[in-house]
Lab assay of single mutants.
Amino acid sequence: SEEELIEKAEKLRKEFEFIWNGIRFIIRENADEIRRFEELLKE
């Protein structure tokens, strides 16, 4: 039914948001290391 689809979509959206926030947190935490690594690659 349509309601089930909406519920599934909402659940997926929440899971995606949770994963995305996790990725963003990891990137933020490691931003300095990532930048340093990029500098090494440029040399």
Rank of each mutant, 00 (worst) to 15 (best):
I23S: 00
N21M: 13
A31K: 03
I27T: 01
F16R: 01
R35S: 05
D32C: 15
E43S: 09
A9Q: 04
F37K: 00
A31L: 11
R28V: 03
E33H: 11
G22E: 04
I26W: 14
E43T: 08
E29L: 14
R35T: 02
E10S: 09
E39D: 04
I19V: 06
N21Q: 09
K8G: 06
E38Q: 11
E38T: 13
W20R: 00
F37I: 04
E3S: 11
W20P: 00
K11E: 06
E15W: 15
S1V: 09
E2F: 12
L12I: 08
R35Y: 07
N21V: 14
L5H: 03
K8F: 11
I34K: 03
F25P: 00
K14H: 07
I23M: 02
I27D: 00
E2Y: 12
N30C: 15
I34L: 08
E33F: 15
K14W: 14
E10L: 08
L41T: 02
E33Q: 12
L12T: 03
I26T: 00
E17N: 04
E33S: 11
E39F: 12
I19C: 13
G22D: 01
I34M: 05
G22Y: 15
I19D: 00
I19L: 06
N30E: 04
K42S: 08
F16Y: 04
E4Y: 05
N30H: 12
K42C: 14
E39K: 12
I6S: 07
E7V: 10
F25S: 02
K11G: 08
F16H: 01
A31S: 04
K11W: 10
K8W: 14
I27N: 00
L40Q: 02
F16W: 13
I26F: 13
L12C: 14
E7Q: 09
E4D: 06
E38L: 15
E15I: 15
E39Q: 09
E33W: 15
E3I: 10
R28S: 06
E7C: 14
N30V: 15
A9T: 10
E38G: 09
F25Q: 05
E4T: 08
E2I: 13
A31C: 15
I27F: 10
G22W: 15
R24Y: 08
E10R: 11
I26R: 01
K14C: 13
E7N: 11
E4F: 10
E15N: 08
W20A: 00
E33A: 13
F37V: 03
F18L: 08
K14P: 04
F18R: 10
F25C: 12
K42E: 03
K8Q: 10
